[in-house]
Each structure stands twice: as C-alpha cells, then as structure tokens.
Write a protein that binds this DNA or RNA. Structure first.
Lengths: 344, 344
DNA sequence: CTGAAAGCGCTTACAG
DNA sequence: CTGAAAGCGCTTACAG
C-alpha cells in the first residue's frame, strides 16, 4: 500500500480510503490511486484489515459428518447465503468426535471468525460452545438441539416426521415396525439406546415410539438397532434384524447411511422392497427418487435450514443480545417403497 | 496478551515466547505464563500471528461443484490431510462459473491463504490461477488439467478408464454405444461438443472415441449428449437419446448427475437396466453398489486424489520452485449394470 | 534467559 | 478533502 500511495502521490491514509471505499476522497484522487493499485497489482491484506477492524468477515462451520449428503447440501446453502452477505466459510469436520469438536471451535476462535455454525456431537457436553472470548462469538447450532438453553439452534421437526412415517407404515397394514437409528454414541451397533444421543436422534426415536404407542402397537427391541453412522455398520445391523425369527416388516432408517445399509442387507438376504420389507428413510438423497423402487422419504428443508442458520447468525453478529431458534417443518414424501406387509 | 504478561509479571515478549512455544523460557516462567493465560481465558489471535509471521496456515479450496459427491469426498480428504499438517481449509464453490472462480481466487489471496487447490471451470481461461502476488501463492489443480504448463495438477487417467468402459461394453456385445457427458460449457444439452470443455471431460470423450475407433465401430452423434451437470438436464437429454429411432444399447455416464439422470429417464421410458440398456458411470457414488442392479462404475481414487493434492501443495509452500503433477489410476468396477444388448 | 523496541499492513480519530 | 500519527496483537532481531 505504501508503494501504491507513493505512485499515486498521496498519503497512505488517502490511499487506504480510496482502496477501502470509505471516508472522503475526490474522484480524481480515487482514480489516481486505483490506477496505481492496478499497475502494481495491489491486493489488500484482509488479515491486516480484519485485525484493525475487529471483523474477519468469516464464519466457521463445524460439521459432524461431511460425508453425509444432507450436511453437504447444508454447507452448500450456508456458503451461498453467507457469500451474498460478504462472508467466507471455514469448514471443519469432526466425525462426531467431541474432542475434535472442541479443537475445531478453539481453532476457529483463534482465527477470529465472526460467528460459528455447529452441528454438535453431544447433547450435554456443550460448555465449549458457549464462547466466553472477548468479544463474544455468537454460535448457532445446525440440525441438532442441545440441553443448554443458552445456545440458539435451527432444526427440523423430526419428532412429527418420525410419527408421520410410522403412521404411514401402519396405514399400509404394518404392525411390526423397526428403527435403524444412526448415532455417534456407539462403536458398532446395539439393541438399546446409548446414554447420550443427540437431540435429533432422540426426537426421531421418541416421535416413532409415541406414534407406535398411540396406535397401540407392541414393539420388540430386536426389531431395531442403534448404529454407528456408516453404510457398512448399518448393513450388518440390518442383516441381524432381518435374520431374527420374526423380523419387522417395515423399517424407518434415520439417515442416508442407514438407508443404504438397510437396502444392501435386504438385497443380500433376498428381501424384496417393498414386497417383503417396506422402508422409509430420512433425507431425500439425490439417488432416492431414481432408486427402484423409488424411496419414500422424510424430506427436510435442507437449503432453508442452512440459509436460516446463516441469517440468524448474522443477526446475532450485528446484535450480540439477539436470541432466536427455529424449528422447520419436515415433509413425508410418499413414493413406492412402502406396500402392504407380506402375507396380507 | 498484555494482561497475561502483567499477571505473570513478565514482559510481553516473554509471554509471547511461552505461549507460542518458541524461543527460550525457563520452565518456571512458562508455567507462570500458562497459568495466567488460563485464568484470563486467553486465546491467541491467529490473525495477528499470521500477519506477523507471513503464514496463515490456511489453504483455500475452490471447487466447481460442491453438490457432487465426488468433490465432497475429495474435500473431506483434503480437510483430513491438511489438518494433520496443521492447516485449515477455506472452501468456496463456483458452480463452474468462471467469474465466480476469479472472485474466489481473489478473495482467498486477500485472506492470505498459503496455497490454493482449485477445480478449474475452464481449460484455457487460467491467467487468474497464476498468482503473481508477493509472496507467490502456490496453486494445485484438482481433478482437471488446463492448457497452461505453468500450473501443477493431480488428476486421474480418465482417458484409459473411458476406453476400458467402452471395451467392456463391446465385450458384452454392444455396438451402439453413447455418451452422456457432463460439462459446464453448455446451458442445457447439445449434440455437439462445446468449444471449451475442461480437460477431464475431453479425456473421457477422447478415451471413449479412441476405443470405439479401435474397435472399428461407427458412432452416431444422436447417441450422445453434452449436458449441463444436473440430474434434471441429464434426464431430459437421456430421454431424447432413448426416444430416437435406433437408440444406443449402452451408455457411459461421465458423472454422478449424468448417471442419475440416465437411470431416471430409462425408468420413465420403460427401459430395463441392464436388459434393455447397459450403463457404466463415472465415480463410485455411495448408492451405486446398493442400486438395482448394482452399477458398474469407474472408480477413481478420490481420497488419494485429495490427499495427494494437499501433499503436493505443502511441498510447494515449503519450496516455491517445487514442480510436480500426478495422474492416478482409475479402476473399472464391474457389477451388474452391463449385459448383452437386447435381441441377442 | 528476559526485556525494550520495531514492525507486519491496515484503519481510525484528529488536525488542518 | 488530505495527512501525520497511533494502534490492532502479535513476532522478531537485538541488547543485556
């Protein structure tokens, strides 16, 4: 910048004003500075600008599982929305590991992001998300609630959606309905719900259970599994479910990995979908509509989820005391993976 | 930091040395400083550190299509590899738009990233990728070559892979083989190859054509389309191909979107895969193996691609004159979406 | 081993 | 409208 100022025969302050587009500069001076900057191929140093201004125009995103197409779509939407407001996105992945989440938050704070969007790994381990630094860094949770009331979130109404899925199964005649539940809280898979599942998982399970109870259905634990979120593990868990003496006739898969694992296991064991097994999956992955049969899914408004999180965060950045949380509606998309149970 | 120094009763320089872990400090002093920092909840300001040290420990990633699961997997691998070396990742998405790519590069340079990984939108418009700033910012291209010999790249041997796919079709008895080619250079879809396609696209087309020529097959333009990279457009293009008087019996889809569009159109028009139509797709998307029939695909080593790009970039960051480019092998994974053509 | 001082590249009152 | 000077929070020779 010193070189630019010299070449334009003005002070550094004037050059800064012309280049930064703030303060008062005459048209002629501005043009001279701009010309000099162009000749010298000058690039502003945003690091210095951020340090001085106290704003980095960067938002940190800490995501639990960047492989999941749901989160990828959310990130895409976050990038779009933020960039319209002049913000850049720093993405870190945690693989649902709490330690990595703490590290990620620390690193982003040190990089002086103006705000954080986090998909938290844990429902109750959240102290690191209440960022005490000076100035305070606002945080918005994406897709998952936590116990703490101090942190705002944007989620979907998964409880209602899970209930709707169960009632859709019931309407087709199913009584034996199982769940394949993705959760980071378990190594492989288990019959019982782990102690500390995140809010979204809990919502889906409780929504389904409430609906089952409302229908007066009995459910057996062996129809369901709580499962580490990978296709391979889901495949194994589903194979075990289907190998039981009286397997469920309908399965609700709580994410894309669970759905792929369930479908893989069903094929392997010769279960036809939907003739032998009906299935509904959370999230309308790009392949779901092309699948045979086209998958019935719970479609969550992922683009809106990401955009809403950014908008909320920007408001909090402007006004440190702004508080808001939102729960968006999810929608059951009926396609052809649900039919009457076998033998009816 | 001034507060920390005061509390520990040392100078700022000593506090900095203790906190930054460089220079000489006695054990006792270090402990006093660390204790003071902990009490005050001190966080180093990486912006200031970066400005002073001239290194931001951040790598910028400019990706053409963040919706595509291939690039998402690459980003995941980039994040993993970079974070092991202490680098963070700033991701920008261009949707294959050259203007947005230029903007993205400028923004990242201004943020003083230490290096750039770019999936370029254009093969010949590349001046903005030769970053003249001081100090020079090294650039590695991911997945796509460009004409300029000044820029290093990490790609896969798509020419060979496309050839292998065609020969696999031929071995099953196919003679009418079409291509569904994803390219950003066209609005919807067209019969002829647009002027400025990126290297990867060209490689796939030429690899397929060379193999077809080697087999002595005639090909008709109406068996193929060059298509904007979206499922919807691919669906339309494929529907048009299949509605022709003598449609191809085998289709090579050059990415995930093309594959999904092709499969959707085939279903809609009542073509059974593989009985009526054989298909091979580029990239082993997570759903490909679960699809019915399981899709035969060209599997590119995506994790290795991302990791190699980061490793190469880090070498270039260390040594500004380091030059290297790599072409990784792709692999044809035979599953069950290729059968003999109908009527044989 | 520790401290005083300069400087990274900007922005921002303040004075003129 | 423009300029001289201070300062953002660090690191880095240099001196002791």
């Amino acid at each position: 910048m010193i070189d630019v100022a010299q070449r334009a025969k003005v002070s550094r302050a004037t050059a800064a004003r012309a280049l930064g587009g703030y303060g008062l500069v005459t048209q002629a001076t501005r043009e001279r500075v701009m010309a000099a900057a162009a000749e010298l191929n000058y690039r502003v140093n945003e690091l210095a600008r951020s340090m001085r201004s106290g704003r980095s125009l960067t938002i940190g995103v800490v995501v639990a599982d960047i492989s999941n197409s749901f989160f990828t779509s959310a990130i895409r939407s976050i990038i779009e929305t933020a960039s319209k407001a002049g913000y850049q996105i720093l993405v870190l992945n945690t693989d649902d590991d709490l330690e990595r989440e703490r590290d990620a938050v620390r690193v982003l704070i040190e990089k002086r992001v103006d705000g954080l969007i986090v998909v938290p790994a844990s429902q109750n381990e959240t102290e690191h998300l209440i960022v005490q630094s000076e100035p305070e860094v606002p945080v918005v949770l994406l897709d998952r609630r936590v116990d703490s009331h101090e942190i705002d979130f944007v989620t979907t109404d998964d409880r209602a959606a899970a209930g709707a899925a169960v009632r859709h199964f019931a309407a087709a005649g199913h009584k034996r309905i199982g769940l394949l539940v993705a959760t980071a809280s378990v190594e492989k898979y288990s019959l019982t719900m782990p102690a500390h599942v995140v809010g979204t998982v809990l919502d889906r399970v409780e929504g389904a259970r409430a609906a089952l109870a409302g229908l007066g259905f009995v459910t057996k634990p062996e129809w369901s599994r709580y499962c580490h979120s990978s296709v391979e593990t889901a495949h194994e868990a589903m194979a075990e479910i289907l190998s039981g003496p009286e397997p469920p006739t309908a399965i609700l898969a709580t994410n894309e990995e669970m759905a792929l694992g369930a479908l893989g296991a069903a094929q392997e064991l010769g279960f036809q979908v939907p003739e032998d097994l009906s299935i509904i999956a959370f999230d309308d992955a790009p392949w779901a509509v092309v699948f045979r049969p086209p998958l019935s899914v719970v479609r969550r408004p992922v683009a809106k989820l990401g955009a809403t999180a950014v908008e909320l965060l920007l408001k909090k950045i402007e006004d440190g005391s702004y508080r808001d949380s939102q729960v968006l509606e999810a929608e059951l998309v009926v396609r052809r993976s649900v039919a009457a149970p076998p033998g009816r």
